[in-house]
Nucleic acid binder design. Structure first.
Lengths: 258, 258
DNA sequence: AGCAATTTTTGACAATTGTCAAATTTGAGA
DNA sequence: TCTCAAATTTGACAATTGTCAAAAATTGCT
């Protein structure tokens, strides 16, 4: 079975996902799983190349740097990563956090190089899907879809520039949405969304959300005082998701183009 | 030749692009052109379906609405469109402006419905690339790329939610970047980037950038006083692009993931 | 050209968030 | 457990932007 090929664990019983101290995402809930299933449909000599390797990554280690040549895509197995670019006069700008089960480096497939830096925020591990022979795969691709992908990549790029420019949310709304988003993503991959460990510093959160660290600290205190969440150290518990969601207007946006 | 099939103009000489009063994008500089070229490579019975039609659109008319079933993608030939979503308590949120040569509705291909509303800001025209038999085309698609596209679409979605949340740019930086971006896009499609007509209201700009209309007005005045731009009515001239760029830090960002 | 509606501009003031400085808490390693 | 560096919290004040109200300019229409 394929999932056993890229995970250290051979068997994962359904009961595992209930374990509160679980720290590693299961293969079936990992983003790579969908990809590997797809390779079943490709020519066998191709799919042979896509056996993935398991790698440990120490806290602070860099998984890849911007402009590194594309080596493959990664799935976070455990721990947490941040991606960032270095802006001319403003130092680093964090563009995303990656939790267990999520994919890294996908958008480098077409560019041939990674577009940003990625480092581990804590002791982590990843699975790699190496693309050393990506050129062969290209032969399988339909050019129409390449065009679609190119446009989507362009749009991602535009949206991310836009992200740097636009902001109409208050500090409360940003932080509330941030916490709910984290909870949702933990839950999607089989962890508890109601209680989890914050893998990143408030400094990183502030950078990511475009706020000062003081504002982050003060806003979290306000949430605590309203008993919306409980925070002790890195331990976060969502006490009142309904109210938090209404503060945040988290549901409001459908997706959009531009 | 294919370009003649979806444009009213049969011949467009290179000299056309120098005409200052030019108002319509040429076929070769239109986003659809790339697509149509790709269809040459597909089976003929497929490519027959992709003859596109030319449509006039009056100011204020809606090209499509959110949740309309997917009819095809559009290329703006002349005029300007805005896309927007309706947020629960905040009215409309503009997500993008579309100039001649740019594509609309691409991201609805997989969803099957459009994800936002699009209306004309002035008398405009579009070319349509109808996808009434999109299902047949699916047979040509490689599932690996579908997966890639899905992930990219998810990322676009995430980034756009992020766009609503995050903001670290001052009003000056946002407006400056906005004007430079418009200029760049006009230029890319063969218009003058140094002087152009603003197709949208300050009201729309404010909405798009997450500012109040008063701040937009005041910031534009500041630009005028510094002689960075000249603005009379809807006529915009970029007087000092170098300085404007440095205010804006427009070049700073590489692209990013998350 | 003239009128009416829309859009833009301007001023005064309020609210949110950032900045600077310093105290306190937390956590990793000896 | 202790120590020291890093991270978080807190307070006072400044800067940017939003809000409300009203005047001026522009645009579309007859």
């Amino acid at each position: 079975m394929r999932s056993a090929e890229f995970s250290g664990k051979n068997v994962s019983s359904p009961a595992d996902s209930e374990c509160p101290d679980k720290t590693e995402v299961e293969c079936r809930q990992c983003g790579l799983f969908g990809f590997l299933q797809l390779f079943e449909g490709l020519r066998l000599d191709l799919s042979n190349r896509f056996l993935s390797r398991r790698l440990p990554v120490a806290k602070g280690d860099r998984l890849f740097a911007a402009d590194d040549p594309f080596r493959g895509i990664y799935a976070v197995k455990s721990g947490c990563f941040k991606s960032y670019s270095v802006l001319e006069y403003q130092g680093e700008q964090i563009s995303g956090f990656y939790l267990p089960g999520e994919l890294l480096g996908l958008d480098a497939i077409r560019a041939g190089v990674y577009g940003y830096h990625v480092v581990a925020l804590e002791t982590s591990s990843v699975c790699q899907l190496p693309f050393s022979h990506i050129d062969d795969l290209q032969g399988e691709l339909v050019s129409f879809q390449e065009q679609v992908i190119q446009v989507l990549v362009d749009q991602v790029r535009h949206d991310q520039r836009q992200t740097l420019l636009v902001g109409r949310r208050t500090a409360e709304e940003r932080l509330g949405a941030f916490l709910l988003n984290l909870a949702e993503r933990f839950e999607r991959h089989g962890f508890s969304g109601g209680e989890f460990r914050l893998p990143m510093l408030q400094n990183d959160i502030a950078n990511y959300l475009g706020l000062s660290i003081e504002t982050v600290s003060r806003t979290l205190r306000a949430f605590r005082e309203q008993e919306l969440v409980s925070i002790q150290g890195k331990r976060v518990r969502i006490l009142n998701p309904v109210c938090l969601r209404s503060i945040t207007q988290y549901c409001a946006t459908t997706h959009a183009g531009g």
